[in-house]
Amino acid sequence: MTTPGEDFRFDICGELSAEANGHVPVNVQGVITKTLPAGRCAVVRHVGSYENISDSVYYLYNTWLPQSGEELREFPVYFQYLQLNEELPEHALQTDILLPLK
């Protein structure tokens, strides 16, 4: 039996400065160093609100993938937020959704 929260994990990725030497220092928050694995990905660009970003994810899994002949790699889908600007209107937000492939 799993406890609440064990079925879902949310990772956040960021770039480290040169002073960090590629590693997050030990911290009380439990933040650790990980690296995105190299490899091929299908990419779709979602434009607009994050509220309906799942529509773009479903498109990749349910429409594009079955028609592509590609196979999934053992790594979850991930997002690259192209702007982090609170002043940007929702309709102008752009996010790349990356689906790792074999």
Rank of each mutant, 00 (worst) to 15 (best):
G69I: 09
G30L: 10
E70R: 06
N62Q: 14
I32W: 09
C41T: 14
L16Y: 10
F8D: 03
S49Y: 02
L60K: 00
V77E: 06
E6W: 03
R73F: 15
T35P: 00
R45D: 00
E74R: 06
V57H: 03
A20N: 03
C13P: 00
Y81P: 03
V44D: 07
P4K: 07
T63F: 08
L101I: 14
P37T: 07
P25M: 05
F8S: 11
F79N: 14
G14W: 11
D7E: 08
Q94S: 14
K102A: 07
L82R: 14
D7F: 04
A42G: 04
M1A: 13
Y58T: 03
L72W: 01
L65V: 06
E15M: 11
F8L: 14
K102H: 09
T95L: 09
A42T: 03
I97Q: 07
T3E: 15
E86V: 11
K34V: 13
Y81K: 04
Y81N: 10
G69T: 12
F10M: 15
A38S: 14
S68F: 04
R9C: 09
W64F: 04
E74D: 15
I97V: 15
T3L: 15
T3Y: 12
L99Y: 03
G14M: 13
E51G: 00
S56R: 04
P25R: 12
N85C: 08
P37C: 01
L72M: 12
E71N: 11
E70F: 02
E6I: 00
G22K: 11
V24N: 01
E51N: 11
P66M: 07
G30D: 10
Q94M: 15
N27I: 03
S54D: 14
E15D: 09
G22M: 08
G5T: 07
T33E: 10
W64G: 01
Q29V: 01
L60H: 01
N62M: 08
T95V: 14
V43W: 06
V28M: 05
Y78Q: 02
A20L: 08
T3H: 12
N52H: 12
S49R: 05
N85R: 13
A20W: 08
C41E: 03
G5S: 07
I32P: 00
V24T: 10
V26A: 15
V77D: 04
G30S: 09
V28A: 15
S54G: 07
